[in-house]
Structures are given as C-alpha cells and as structure tokens.
C-alpha cells in the first residue's frame, strides 16, 4: 500500500468527520449515525493487517479533540472496537448481509455502551433511550455504506 492509497483512506475519514460535525437542527442530532465509527469498522474489516487497534486509538483521540471531550474517552472505545472488528473480520466478511448487519449492530452497541459508561462516570452524560438511536440508524446505513466503500476500495485497489 503506497502513499496515494493511504491518502484515500484518510480522505474517507475526513468526509466521515465532516459528516459528524455538520450543523443540524437539535431534534435531528440524536439520530445522526456515527460516520467515523462506521468508516473505522469498514477499514478494520477490509485491511485488518494494516488498520487495527492502534489506528482506532489515534482516530478516537482525534474524535475527542474535535468534540472537545476529555482526551482518551473515545480513544479507549475506538481501540476496543477496532480490536474486536479485526479479530472477527474473517467471520463478519463471510456472513450474509443481514447477519453482517446484526454483528455490526452488536459492535456499535458495545462501543456506545463503553463510551456511554465512561462518560456517565465522568458526569458528562445522562442516559436516555435516544442515546441508542444513532446505532440503529448506523446499522440501517451500513449495507449502503459498505457497497460504496467496497467500490471505492476496488477502484483504488486498496488491499
């Protein structure tokens, strides 16, 4: 994998970060899927040898800075998520689409509960059922995101 290909991976993250930050009216916000997490899961499935726990941690740290959170909260969550995804990548790749979506949903829930638990310990967050809404929307978007990202990856010959 050379420089240009890494650049494309970086660009997908830039787009994901921007989609996560774009201003929306207040009532839509809880429904916004976590694009960065979805893109992270995709790359952990597609190129698990090059993209794993360490990268997940770095991306998480960047999420903490853009969201003005305490440093380390999302880093911990994303490192764990990246680890689990790369451990399970062979199985998840083999699954039919609905099983794949189900496992992605579970991964998203694990990530959300880990981050939510830490943030409520820190007193930053009060749980309500809307907190899980972004994972539901995220898993609904996953099949389409997967197709778009796969086409991009094949076009750029990233493997």
């Amino acid at each position: 994998m050379n420089g240009t290909r890494w650049l494309i991976v970086c660009l997908t993250f830039v787009v994901a970060f921007v989609l996560n930050l774009i201003p929306l009216p207040g009532w839509v916000l809880p429904y916004r899927p976590d694009w960065v997490v979805l893109v992270l899961i995709y790359w952990c499935l597609a190129i698990p040898d090059r993209f794993g726990t360490g990268m997940g941690w770095l991306i998480g740290l960047l999420v903490d800075v853009t969201n003005a959170n305490l440093l380390g909260v999302h880093a911990l969550g994303m490192a764990t998520l990246a680890y689990l995804t790369s451990r399970l990548h062979l199985r998840i790749r083999m699954f039919p689409w609905w099983q794949q979506s189900l496992s992605i949903f579970l991964l998203l829930l694990i990530y959300k509960s880990l981050v939510g638990w830490m943030r409520s310990l820190l007193g930053e967050l009060q749980f309500d059922w809307m907190y899980w809404m972004s994972s539901v929307i995220g898993v609904m978007i996953w099949p389409w995101l997967f197709i778009v990202m796969r086409d991009l990856r094949r076009y750029a010959r990233i493997s």
Binding site: T53, W57, L71, G72, S86
Partner: peptide, 18 residues
C-alpha cells in the same frame, strides 16, 4: 494484538486522568 489493546486501554486511562 491483545497485548497492544491492553496497553492502549491503560494509556487511555492515564491520558484521561492526566
């Protein structure tokens, strides 16, 4: 890989405290 995850989790906690 697992060792790396454990190390990163410890590092995250240190970072949070710091």
């Amino acid at each position: 890989d697992f060792l790396r995850l454990v190390l990163l989790i410890c590092l995250s906690v240190v970072v949070m405290l710091a």
